[in-house]
Nucleic acid binder design. Structure first.
Length: 317
DNA sequence: TTAGGGTTAG
């Protein structure tokens, strides 16, 4: 039986936790979470007991409401009634432990998986890796990836992208690029737009980022507005004004849906370069493009004007 | 199939 201490819940019964949280009486069912819990309690009293599939349905529903420790408590109640967990139950349980930062318990369940004769699948792999990455444990995520794929688990695009993002977050660009190359070689799982944007976001200071964009334009997947946003931001940060303007024109030509973030990047870039005329021009274009300036754009424009000594204009903006 | 999950630009 699994019984980790919960960080977020008291020792009340699952149903009580739910009632307290939502302030309802025991007779009022107000949301799907309460409905699932009430149903679970009814199902526990049924004789003969329903199949494990029915229980999995309910556990899955409750798990989606983010009450992971409640799921674990219900799983234990199932055990007391002699309901054997199946492949799906165990994956749900692993997911709950991962979200509660109880990776030790997640690995215990994995052991139970193997002992019961189940082979962990892509869902198990992604869930475990996500658990490690949530804790910032990239090395453990990598080890998990290596061990499980060697053991026959097939990685999918999410497996790769999760690890890619993990490497980028800790600044391990070499590992990220290596993994990206492995994906390019993988016949079954080529990099997609998420993979490209993740790597471009990591390489924005380098020429390699622009080369990746060209590659996308030539061979696909086609870059989206976020790909351009990442690069425009990089060019602005590098002070490459001419390249910024060219790339922006390229974005316009491709008729990609320009948004307020793109304009804020450009306005900030122009202000930084001291080109307040261009910054003001971009700002004044917003309404004609159907875009509503938000607080951040105002902030960028006002800061630019103040830095340029145009105090009255900043006040009257 | 009942389970899981990825970029996140200002």
């Amino acid at each position: 039986m699994f019984s980790p201490s919960s960080r977020n819940h008291s020792q009340s019964s699952p149903y009580e936790v739910s009632r307290i949280k939502h302030g309802t009486s025991s007779h009022e069912i107000e949301n799907p979470e309460e409905e699932a819990l009430a149903l679970f309690r009814r199902v526990l009293r049924m004789r003969p007991l329903p199949s494990v599939v029915r229980f999995n349905h309910l556990l899955g529903q409750i798990s989606k409401t983010k009450h992971k420790s409640v799921v674990i408590s219900l799983f234990n109640q199932m055990g007391l009634l002699g309901i054997m967990p199946d492949f799906f139950t165990l994956n749900i349980l692993i997911n709950c432990f991962c979200h509660l930062n109880h990776m030790g318990f997640s690995l215990c369940v994995l052991g139970k998986f193997v002992k019961s004769g189940y082979a962990p699948d892509t869902v198990t792999l992604n869930t475990l890796m996500n658990g490690f990455l949530l804790e910032g444990k990239v090395d453990e995520a990598r080890e998990c990836f290596c061990k499980m794929t060697k053991g026959g688990c097939k990685p999918d695009i999410v497996t790769y992208n999760s690890l890619l993002n993990g490497f980028c977050k800790v600044g391990d660009t070499t590992a990220a690029v290596q993994l990206f190359r492995n994906m390019e070689k993988d016949r079954f799982c080529k990099p997609n737009i998420v993979s490209y944007n993740t790597v471009i976001n990591d390489l924005w200071r380098t020429q390699a980022a622009m080369e990746l964009l060209c590659k996308m334009q030539d061979c696909g997947p086609l870059p989206n507005i976020r790909s351009y946003g990442i690069l425009l931001d990089g060019l602005c940060k590098n002070g490459q004004l001419q390249e910024t303007i060219e790339l922006f024109r390229n974005t316009e030509e491709k008729k990609l849906p320009l948004n307020i973030v793109i304009y804020n990047i450009l306005i900030g870039g122009m202000c930084k370069a001291g080109n307040l005329v261009a910054a003001r021009d971009l700002f004044s274009q917003l309404s004609s493009k159907g875009l509503q300036p938000d607080a951040r754009v105002y902030n960028t424009m006002i800061s630019g004007l103040l830095d340029g000594g145009l105090i009255d204009e900043a006040i009257n903006l």
